[in-house]
Design a protein around this nucleic acid. Structure first.
Lengths: 333, 333
DNA sequence: TTGTATGCGTTATCAC
DNA sequence: GTGATAACGCATACAA
């Protein structure tokens, strides 16, 4: 374990000089810096990050808190954030809350205790507001929220174009001639699901159709709930669904298959998030793409640049078989 | 920012006592400990992990290094490891190498500099041996390898039952009556792919068929390579493939569809890893299941228990449509 | 441009 | 059972 003192004594200078040299301070002679760098390399020196962080009162870790890590959407967000943060000299500490409020509090406490450089978070379903976040991380630690955000919290936010996206998707189903379009609306504790529901509603109303709460299904973003709600939708006479998530749409499709209802001729469906399985299944599932990698990059940049605004990442309607009743559009992968 | 000194002065004792009390030392009066605990809670004290780690010379972080985070397989391994490690008071720092040797070296250096409690790693494709791992982390830091392992490195290893799995899969294709079975064998730099190839080979030879290197395709575990190799396999007269990965099998299936070759009546295929898309596609893809969550748990436990043995996690042949020529087995999800 | 002195918050080793 | 003291390795304010 070689320290700056070792280098210093080997070179006949003081640890301060070595510290400055290694930090690239301009207040050190080029010649000295060269000698220090060389000696450090020769002796195999590596900075003790814990000591450095303790002294500086902050760390080079950025904490990323997500509900689930084994969702492509979140995995790709992390990948995007990591690419930008690593390039800037930061390391990423990932915590998954598994949608539990308690886990989220625990994760935030841990990150706070590390004095991480910033916290990037997409809150769990169980979190109904951001009080715990504000309370735990205080005022000084940068906060970036992405995807699932609490608008009243300070700091940067990276969000999807939820209202517009849901509007586009619903509108498309209407244009394809579906007559009674329900929605798997998701958790109303999350702003983004409320926004998607509003987009759906606007599209319905703009088309002169009636907004009917009996075919708006909540808490339905997982597979099983998708099946259940789809059954109810069938009973309610629906012939199409906009789903605020892909997994619930998947469940719905399986339920429709079970009932021998053909997709898309008798029933249309569009999901959200563009998980890669949507392109592989039969029928392939149309979906609102979210660009998670870019969201992750944007979140990281917002932190690095000290921004505190809200950035909106476009959502893209990817048309595949499940919504394409008239076969008038080339299906895409 | 409340410290042990703050608690100490509030209570009229010394920081030493507070430290001991909070650490649950038996050398402190129960009464004192209770007072300390209460005051700590009341003042909102949280241990400064960086200071603690610096003093103790180690950290409560376990570093997990994987090739890719947005692969369900690895995401689930991380999930499994995290569940066990969090329960034991550790935090997980995740690094992805994106299959790059250079990134792997960088990640290992970072983790070493944090003096992490242990490193768990599945090496990148570009890493041909474990010299860099041994060199960077030294002798004292616990090392657990999983899935892709270098057998000559010390420490625990958690591996799949690769030989037996590939044997079972290939055997099954033979029993289904396929006559010329090739393999998408993967990267020979990885032991696990070599083992799978050996399992394939044994199954072929045990059945009195000839092992034919011209239908053994290497470097084929990604989608595009799967397509390419499948084309060659078709030209070589194959009527079945065992693929050492699911993504290459997916590519192969798309290539077969393109050529109008029916699966499974004219061509059989089995993948490996049981990525969830395999159950969703049409035809659904039979696959060798890997139990990644359990692998992650096993890796974490190996570290916690200080074991250094090799643990083999069973692989399970999940039969779906793609291999089921005779329709004699109920397809499973 | 470099050296001196100090402290980040905690824990471990002594004493008492 | 508790207190005093030192040290973990580094970074900075200040002095020179």
């Amino acid at each position: 374990m070689v320290t700056i003192s070792d280098i210093a004594s080997a070179l006949g200078v003081t640890p301060s000089t070595v510290s400055r040299a290694l930090a690239g301070s301009p207040r050190v002679k080029a010649e000295t810096r060269a000698a220090v760098d060389e000696m450090a390399r020769k002796m195999g020196y590596e900075r003790n990050i814990m000591a450095s962080n303790l002294r500086k009162g902050r760390s080079d870790i950025v904490g990323v808190v997500v509900p689930l890590i084994n969702r492509e959407f979140f995995a790709n967000i992390i990948g995007g954030a990591e690419s930008v943060l690593n390039a800037a000299g930061y390391n990423v500490l990932i915590c998954q809350t598994k949608e539990s409020f308690e886990s989220e509090v625990k994760a935030l406490r841990t990150l706070r205790n590390y004095h991480v450089a910033a916290i990037m978070i997409s809150h769990s379903i169980e979190s109904e507001n951001g009080d715990h976040i504000r309370e735990i991380i205080g005022e000084r630690m940068p906060l970036v929220q992405f995807d699932r955000v609490f608008p009243d919290l300070p700091g940067a936010k990276i969000v999807g174009e939820n209202f517009e996206g849901a509007y586009k998707a619903t509108k498309y189903l209407i244009e394809q001639g579906y007559k009674r379009i329900g929605t798997l609306a998701g958790y109303m504790t999350c702003l983004l699901y409320r926004e998607r529901l509003e987009g759906y509603r606007k599209a319905i109303e703009d088309s002169g159709m009636e907004y009917d709460e009996s075919i708006v299904f909540h808490d339905t973003i997982v597979y099983d709930k998708g099946r259940e709600s789809c059954l109810k939708a069938i009973d309610a006479g629906c012939d199409a669904l906009y789903s605020a998530g892909d997994f619930s749409a998947l469940g719905a499709i399986d339920e429709l298959k079970l009932h021998g209802i053909d997709i898309p001729s008798r029933f249309g469906i569009i999901g959200t998030a563009n998980e890669s399985f949507t392109a592989l299944m039969t029928p392939s599932l149309s979906s609102l793409g979210q660009h998670p990698y870019e969201m992750g990059q944007a979140a990281a940049r917002a932190f690095l640049e000290g921004r505190t605004d809200t950035e909106v990442i476009p959502m893209e309607l990817l048309l595949r078989q499940s919504s394409n009743r008239n076969n008038d559009i080339q299906c895409q992968k």
